[in-house]
């Protein structure tokens, strides 16, 4: 099967799930309308979801669950960090934009890495240079300007898990 059609089928299934979660109405008219709308969406905008092919294996599912748990734990830490900074009378900030080196290559992996960095303590992704694989990260309390230290502190928390999940 061609890759575009696979991507269209994935978009069709996802749209059907979202439709039934929003309506929660299993009469005949609702089911027909949902299937027609999902098919229209899949035909016109379906080919952009999956771009490159890869094999499925079971370990990825467990790593995804572990990734979600780790993401929630880091978000909780981030919120207490920001709350401490905001409530403190003297506002202890020392901001700056540093470089972070990454090993990931795929688009989806880079997007999820940037989103995870944005939701974790004190950091916010500003831009990505895809050719040299460098992320520019705004850090609210800069500990060191060296690229190795910042990569160790910011990037490597998620890189090992994301390498298994998305590569």
């Amino acid at each position: 099967m061609k890759l575009e059609n696979k991507s269209r089928i994935a978009v069709f299934v996802l749209s059907c799930i979202v439709w039934f979660l929003i309506t929660l109405n299993f009469s005949l008219a609702s089911i027909v309308a949902g299937i027609i709308l999902s098919a229209v969406t899949a035909i016109f905008a379906g080919e952009i979801l999956i771009i490159t092919e890869r094999k499925f294996h079971l370990g990825r599912v467990f790593y995804t669950i572990g990734y979600i748990i780790k993401l929630f734990w880091e978000m909780l830490k981030a919120n207490f960090h920001v709350a401490y900074i905001v409530v403190h009378p003297k506002l202890p900030v020392k901001p700056g934009i540093v470089r972070v080196k990454t090993k990931l290559t795929r688009d989806s992996a880079l997007t999820m890495l940037a989103n995870s960095i944005t939701l974790t303590p004190g950091t916010l992704t500003v831009d990505i240079n895809k050719d040299e694989k460098i992320l520019y990260v705004h850090w609210i309390y800069v500990k060191s300007q060296d690229i190795k230290v910042s990569t160790e502190e910011i990037g490597s928390r998620f890189e090992k898990i994301l390498e298994v999940v998305f590569e």
Binding site: M75, A78, N79, V82, A83, I85, V86, V87, L91, V93, P95, T118, L119, G122, T123, L124, H138, I140
Partner: peptide, 24 residues
């Protein structure tokens, strides 16, 4: 806390950090 950070922090990048994390 996020809204308080939006009011107190000094420039737009710091405000964006506090507000996005806490309010999300």
């Amino acid at each position: 806390f996020g809204v308080l950070g939006l009011l107190r922090l000094p420039d737009v990048y710091n405000r964006l950090q506090a507000a996005t994390k806490c309010v999300t």
